[in-house]
Design a protein around this nucleic acid. Structure first.
Lengths: 116, 116
DNA sequence: CAAATTACTATGGTTGTCAAAGTAATTTGT
DNA sequence: ACAAATTACTTTGACAACCATAGTAATTTG
C-alpha cells in the first residue's frame, strides 16, 4: 500500500518462499499473510502473486496440488521444495548483503582520497 | 557486479541524487563514484545511468549544463535542484520504512493469533 | 600509431509488476 | 429469499526500469 513499488520489487519470490516455509498455503491465504506480516503496509497484487507462483513452480522452488475441499471453493496449494528452501536461504543472505551496499550508495559520501 | 539486480532496482535515482548532492558531476564520474561507494560490488550500466539522468531532468530533480572543457572530451554536468534535494530526503525515509517491512516479510513468521 | 580510456547517445529487448476483467462458488446482511 | 460481499483462481495487455549492444568521437597511454 504505502510502500514504494520498486523498492519491494524482486522480493516477491522470497516473501512467498518464507511464507510457504512455515507450511503449505494457497494464493488467497498467502495474500492475507503478506498483509498481516507487513502490518497492513503492503498488499501484493493478485496477478503478481499468481505470476510468481508459476515462476516458482517452473524453477522448482515450489510444487502445487489441488486441495480436496468437500465444501468451499477449490484451492490450489503450494509446497516449498528442498531447492526452494536452499534458494530462500541464499535470498536472505543476498538481502543482507544488498542492504549494506544500498545504504552506502544512498547515504555515504565519497572521501577525497577515493577520487581516481 | 555481485549484487542481485532486482534488489537494487528503484534505487538508481536516489543513488544519483545522493552523489550529486555532494557536488555537480557528470555521467562518467557518477559511474565511478558508484563503483567506489559500493566498494566494487556494484556497477551501473551506462544506458541505465543516462536514462536515469533524462528521467531526473524531466522530473526537475536535476538540471544539466555542458562544461567548458578546453581540453579533454566534452562533459555534461548535472546539478541537483531544491526539488531533487527534497525528493532525496523523502527517498531516504522511504528506504528506512521499506527495509523494516521487507525484513518482516522475508524473515518473520505469522503468530497463531494473526490468522483471520 | 594502435590500443585503451574518457564521455555521451540511441536502439531493441527482457522482466517483474500492475490494472482490469472474467469465472465461479460460498457466505453474509437485510 | 435474494442481493452483496467474500473467497479463490486465471488471463490479457500494458508499463517502467533495466540491460546488452553498438555507435560516435576525442584524448591518452604503451
Amino acid at each position: 500500500m504505502t510502500i514504494s513499488k520498486d523498492l519491494i520489487r524482486g522480493h516477491t519470490d522470497t516473501i512467498i518462499l518464507n511464507i510457504l516455509n512455515q507450511g503449505d498455503s494457497y494464493g488467497y491465504q498467502v495474500s492475507k499473510s503478506i498483509r498481516i506480516l507487513s502490518q497492513q503496509q503492503y498488499e501484493l497484487n493478485e496477478a503478481t502473486l499468481y505470476t510468481a507462483f508459476r515462476r516458482l513452480e517452473k524453477s522448482g522452488d515450489v510444487v502445487s496440488y489441488w486441495g480436496d475441499e468437500t465444501q468451499g471453493a477449490r484451492r490450489k496449494y503450494y509446497k516449498i521444495t528442498a531447492t526452494g528452501q536452499q534458494n530462500l536461504a541464499v535470498a536472505l543472505q543476498d538481502w543482507e548483503f544488498a542492504k549494506d551496499i544500498i545504504n552506502r550508495l544512498i547515504t555515504d559520501t565519497i572521501a577525497k582520497g577515493d577520487v581516481s
